[in-house]
């Protein structure tokens, strides 16, 4: 009796497990390892890196899948630095980056035997935002931004930034120190990468920054342009004065270079080795480069200007010849 019962229990569990396994196995024909077939029509592509660039590469993967259903592209978001760590071990085919590769990362790649080609695939405007109820800040100079964000800054009230501003405490929100956005902003504004005051509310999730700034009258924060675009009703963008007058962030001001110094390029770093040995990756990269404008539009990124497009094409040509492809 006892045994019969326990068999019942066990069989219920087994049937459950098998059903699940069977469901999982239903999609059974697709990936082989990329090296196994040189046909160029199936295989796997691994991309990792910046979470800022990931939506762009994901959109590329999605569009690419429409014409190449047998190539499986996966996109991870380990961050620019975390992604380079994997990339330089040869674990991924390409790395997304919201800043340029650093010297020690490049050294790691050399050690790991991974060559790469830097390519700019889209633009971004780091957007400084304040609360929509803030009617006194329209424009800030780079100097004022530095005053607010520099290490050990004593600025805690808007009237310390400009005496004409009212008595209103500043509440600061920004990305965490692992983020490429943080690296870029601190480099552009404070003059040294990673140098920032630390008494602000950091978050890796830009939506938290949006919520924070929209929730406090004296709030201020910064993040990529797409988050501003999607949240224009909740936050107000500040114009930036780099000595030549106030410039608002927009696709046009970024493309013509006038939104300085916070207009920034976004990068991909394809591996030359992967390009040569993984036909699936070669065709994905070709698609990415040839349809870059369309991809940027689909992912709501600021596309390249003409000069940058020409540069991208020549960089791609360099990468192909380095990989021994015609």
């Amino acid at each position: 009796m006892r045994i019969a019962r326990s068999i019942k229990v066990a069989s219920v569990l087994c049937v459950g497990a098998m059903t699940l396994a069977a469901c999982g196995g239903s999609n059974n024909e697709s990936t082989e390892s990329p090296a196994a077939d040189g046909g160029g029509t199936s295989g796997a592509v691994r991309v990792d890196g910046s979470s800022t660039v990931a939506p762009l590469t994901s959109a590329a993967a999605e569009l690419f899948a429409e014409t190449n259903p047998d190539i499986n592209v996966t996109v991870g978001t380990s961050g620019t630095g975390g992604g380079f760590e994997k990339f330089c071990r040869g674990e991924t085919d390409m790395n997304d980056a919201s800043r340029q590769i650093e010297d020690d990362e490049a050294a790691n790649c050399e050690e790991g035997g991974v060559e790469f080609q830097e390519m700019v695939v889209a633009n971004d405007a780091l957007t400084v935002v304040v609360n929509p109820g803030n009617d006194f800040v329209q424009c800030l100079t780079v100097e004022q931004l530095k005053q607010i964000w520099e290490p050990k800054s004593e600025v805690n009230n808007w009237n310390q930034v400009d005496p004409s501003f009212p008595d209103e405490p500043i509440k600061l929100f920004g990305p965490g120190t692992d983020s490429g956005t943080f690296d870029y902003f601190t480099d552009a504004i404070n003059g040294e990468e990673g140098a920032s005051r630390t008494d602000y509310t950091p978050s890796e999730d830009d939506n938290v920054i949006v919520t924070g700034v929209s929730g406090s009258t004296g709030g201020m924060g910064y993040f990529g342009y797409t988050y501003y675009e999607e949240n224009q009703d909740k936050v107000k963008a500040v114009e930036i004065d780099n000595g030549d007058g106030c410039v608002a962030p927009s696709p046009e001001t970024v493309q013509d270079g006038s939104y300085a110094p916070l207009g920034r390029p976004l990068f991909i770093y394809p591996s030359i080795q992967a390009l040569g040995s993984n036909p699936a990756f070669a065709s994905f990269l070709q698609y990415y480069v040839e349809n870059d404008a369309q991809i940027a539009e689909a992912a709501l990124f600021i596309p390249l200007n003409e000069e940058q497009v020409a540069e991208l094409e020549s960089e791609y040509a360099d990468a192909k010849s380095a990989a021994g492809l015609s």
């Binding site: 999609n27 979470s51 939506p55 499986n72 592209v73 996966t74 978001t77 990529g224 675009e229 949240n231």
Partner: peptide
């Protein structure tokens, strides 16, 4: 990975899981 458009097809396949998909979606713009 956080963006993947195919189901796993074996033990050596790439994958994502629900908590990670949730995490990824929450941080979208």
């Amino acid at each position: 990975v956080t963006f993947i458009t195919f189901n796993p097809d074996g033990l050596m396949s790439s994958y994502t899981v629900m908590p990670i998909q949730i995490y990824n979606w929450i941080s979208q713009s």
